[in-house]
């Protein structure tokens, strides 16, 4: 029984979810190897060689220099075939969600999405916007899965040094990566932030968004959004928190003008402390909030900022 962890490199940077995925492999138990693909994966392999893996594989070959689901799934499938892993896991990032099911299709393997825990040989995962936890059995020789990074604390180096080896890359010329168009932001990533200030429908316009951003900057926080705000074009889609957006669990989540639809709550209900500021006292967000303030966010935020400045 051994696991292959796919760590993720993007634009030569090792993504933080890789450490959570290693932690998930350790929680599952048994031996594990790590695979990194793409430009910068040699350095990434070096950074991950003291985390308890047997071997850390990498490839910077042209065929996998840039990510495509097609080439990566073929390359991973080849390594699984060669080494006989019984499980393959990757963080539930957009890359993991894109590539791992394709790998499952290639291997004829059962897949579990968004794994949050293990129960013997079975897997735990949320369904129905987080309102049910399913125990899932996989009936194929290999199980493939994405793991929810918020459910596993990032692994730390555990001593020892793994072997480092080059993997054989397999290309697919029917799919071509063209370019990234990433949002420029000086604020922390939603996944990495310890505080998130989030805007909902109640934050009606660009001025409201500016207030939310000002509070976030004062607190060194990331900015999040409900779907309504993204649909209005007030904030970019990659800031959307929810069932079909980003799943977050910061130390502090401040929901400004967010009603608390099922789909939004699914993305933030595991935050340690939740604050809701909403002028509608009937808003369902107050059911999950640790601290609720019935107020117009536009009046509450400036006062909140003043009080915070006074104590800092």
């Amino acid at each position: 029984m051994s696991t292959l962890v796919i760590a993720e490199i993007r634009q030569s940077e090792l993504r933080a979810s890789s450490y959570n995925t290693i932690a998930a492999a350790k929680a599952k138990g048994g031996d594990f190897d790590i695979l990194l693909l793409g430009k910068g994966s040699a350095a990434g392999a070096d950074a991950l060689k003291e985390f308890g893996a047997g071997t850390v594989y990498y490839s910077e070959a042209d065929a996998v220099a840039e990510y495509t689901a097609e080439s990566y799934a073929k390359t991973v499938a080849a390594l699984v075939g060669e080494k006989g892993y019984t499980a393959v896991m990757m963080g539930a990032t957009t890359t993991g969600k894109d590539m791992i099911p394709r790998l499952g299709g290639l291997l004829g393997a059962g897949m579990v999405s968004d794994v949050i825990g293990f129960d013997g040989a079975n897997y735990l995962r949320p369904m129905f916007a987080g309102n049910a936890i399913a125990t899932v059995e996989v009936n194929t020789p290999v199980a493939v899965m994405t793991v929810r990074e918020t459910a596993f604390d990032a692994a730390a180096p555990s001593g020892g040094v793994s072997a480092v080896a080059e993997a054989t890359a397999v290309g697919d010329d029917r799919a071509k990566f063209i370019e990234y168009r990433l949002t420029e932001s000086s604020r922390p990533d939603l996944g990495a932030a310890s505080i998130i200030v989030s805007a909902g429908r109640g934050v009606k316009d660009a001025d409201g968004v500016k207030q939310v951003e000002a509070l976030a900057d004062l607190l060194g926080a990331a900015v999040g959004a409900s779907r309504a705000v993204v649909d209005e074009g007030l904030l970019p889609n990659d800031l959307q928190v929810g069932q079909t957006g980003k799943i977050v669990a910061p130390d502090l989540y401040i929901a400004c003008g967010i009603s608390g639809a099922i789909q939004h709550v699914a993305g933030m209900k595991d935050s340690k402390v939740i604050v809701a500021i909403n002028k509608d006292e009937e808003a369902p967000i107050f059911e999950v909030a640790d601290y609720g303030l019935v107020a117009d966010f536009a009046k509450a935020i400036p006062e909140f900022m003043e009080k915070v400045k006074a104590i800092k």
Partner: peptide, 30 residues
Amino acid sequence: SATKILGLSQPPARAAGQIVGSVEELVDKL
């Protein structure tokens, strides 16, 4: 099917929260 759902359970519920009366009280509690 390659997988089977053996059962569903309720996720752990959050402890009940409180409504605060003012921004000052909110900041104090945080």
